[in-house]
Design a protein around this nucleic acid. Structure first.
Lengths: 355, 355
DNA sequence: CTGAAAGCGCTTACAG
DNA sequence: CTGAAAGCGCTTACAG
């Protein structure tokens, strides 16, 4: 094999008439090289297209990197578990390269829990080389980002993008388009003059998320551009209060008998769908977001007609991977990485799952 | 960092009271080790959970691997270009590990071209360590596979699976379910009593592909399970003969005025959609397969209502990657890897593209 | 500022 | 069958 024609630092040293140590110094801008030798080596470097052997490099250097991961805590089967799994996959891949992750999980229904984590992180000397963060409480995260800017620590966003910041990269969907697709899939299933219910399903203390707002905006935009002529009804439900939810939904559906569709802009469509299932109502089509167990079940049962998904595993995986590659290889990723918006039906959900 | 607690072969040697050379021999079953030492080392290995440092391993060993890639040739923008790109990505990733690919591109409209490649490959001494093949002419590929079985050379399938063979792994979609989804998306766009046209779009000399047959079967299955009551019309068109195609389609649509939908089970839906566009017919909905440029354009123009896709890049990438990992790390992949079936609408196509 | 040397964890000839 | 030694390509102290 005339393959390993790759030029090595030993070759460069020879060509320049210096030692490998000197070549290494100019390669890494470590200083302590005379003007003369610097020129000689650089001149050669420009001609030879030197490709460092990354394996040898990491083998020899005993460098370690620490990355802080700040995402919501989760129960098994919940949305953030998938993100976490992607993070773990990247962690495994880069463990051999001296990368070490530390995870900080906050309560997504309580901004104080995030505030506390940030304060603690900033209290001592901040010894992380990079940060991955889910942008759930965007005002807090913006503040934190600006501190990191001062410290010159790179950080990535996942979940929802915050455009005007200095993040190294964002990985996630475009929420507005994701809302449009929700509208289209809903209209595939109902008549254009049918009414629609949008239950906002919250936990006590939840703030409005950008994710929700942008999806809803996209959804309404789409309806406005079609011949949709029904009425939209809003209602607030609570994650932990089924009794309340059932009562409110009973009342709403009785008073608005033209409702034939429903859409939920966070991962909680199963709350609405489960109600319909228990009440044995099968002429209302539900569209939901996120491939989590509770939603999948109701998709397969035909109550949820379609799920719109945003590749949470990939968000976690790429969020970490790009930080690692930035630290180890100095590779700068694109700043905005809009991931595919997936449409899941009963017929393709199984193949999506085993990814 | 109490991190590099990883045990090394030097440690094992010390614990066993032997040299690292001996440990290396038992680790790789290279023989030439006394019963006694073999036992000692193995005993220790069972306790310590030794994780070899792959970087050191490949750095030290100057092994090289050659993989033969057998897929259809393509023009820019055609389907197989995407597969090829995935292959190239994997090639780049594993080049540093001594893996070298050799590509053999056959004419997908001419089985003789594949026969010729196989014959030439088998003529000399076969010096490839593994093979990736697209299963387009399945009878030929089965024959070739069986030869590889005898040579004990691992091989992967992509495109369509051939279940009863000894392939290391298959990467691709389940064609039947992919056909069902085509049916569902079409029914979203037409009335249940509308007629449907299925143009078989071929090149002279094309054989029936398993892919096509299985998709069509899935499609018909789905219709049979719903209240669909229209009629299906079949027609044969030719890739290079627009004059013929237009004449035939003109005749068909005139004689069957109830046709409101069309579906094409290979990547050539653009042939049908383009006809409709030029004839200014906008009450016929088309469903197609595969995200290629010609189809994307017509999807965005609204003539193709949905594209069903099968992640060609991923097929190429994983097809190669799993072979590399098998060769280098002795890692055996799952035999059947059904990739997600993606549904693309004008609203989400752009995000799919930049993957 | 500079080079020789040791070392990262593993593999590969090579004496014995 | 066995171990000591050299080497993979690079980095890191350390004399000078």
């Amino acid at each position: 094999m005339a393959e390993n024609k790759n030029i090595k630092i030993k070759d460069i040293a020879q060509m320049a008439g210096v030692s490998v140590g000197t070549v290494d110094r100019v390669l890494h801008d470590r200083g302590r090289v005379s003007e003369e030798n610097l020129k000689k080596v650089k001149a050669i470097l420009e001609v030879v297209n030197y490709q460092p052997n990354m394996m040898a490099r990491t083998l020899a250097s005993k460098k370690h990197y620490k990355i802080a991961v700040i995402i919501p805590a989760f129960q098994p089967g919940e949305y953030w578990e998938k993100v976490y799994k992607g993070i773990q996959r990247a962690e495994g891949e880069f463990a051999g390269y001296g990368v070490h992750l530390e995870k900080f999980l906050f309560d997504q229904h309580n901004s104080h829990s995030l505030r506390k984590i940030i304060n603690e992180l900033l209290a001592g000397s901040f010894d992380f080389n990079a940060v991955l963060m889910a942008t759930l409480f965007s005002n807090l995260m913006i503040e934190f980002s600006q501190t990191l800017d001062l410290l010159r620590i790179p950080y990535n966003y996942i979940d929802a993008n915050i455009p005007a910041q200095q993040q190294l990269a964002y990985f996630g969907t475009n929420s507005g388009d994701s809302g449009e697709i929700g509208a289209k899939m809903l209209l595939y299933n109902i008549k254009k003059n049918a009414d629609i219910v949008i239950p906002k399903i919250l936990n006590i203390g939840d703030q409005d998320s950008n994710q929700w707002i942008n999806r809803e905006t996209g959804f309404l935009d789409y309806l406005n551009h079609t011949a949709y002529s029904g009425t939209i009804h809003r209602i607030e439900l609570y994650l932990d209060d089924p009794v309340y939810n059932f009562r409110e939904l009973d009342i709403l559906l009785k008073s608005k008998p033209k409702i034939r569709g429903g859409i939920v802009f966070n991962s909680k469509a199963h709350i609405l769908a489960n109600y319909l299932k228990i009440r044995n109502i099968n002429d209302i089509s539900v569209i939901g977001y996120d491939v989590i167990e509770a939603n999948i079940k109701l998709l397969k049962e035909g109550i949820i007609k379609a799920l719109i998904a945003q590749r949470p595993q990939q968000q976690g995986y790429e969020g970490i991977k790009s930080l690692c590659e930035y630290l180890i290889l100095k590779k700068t990723p694109p700043k905005e990485n809009y991931l595919p918006i997936d449409i899941l039906l009963p017929e393709n959900i199984d193949y999506y799952q085993n990814q």
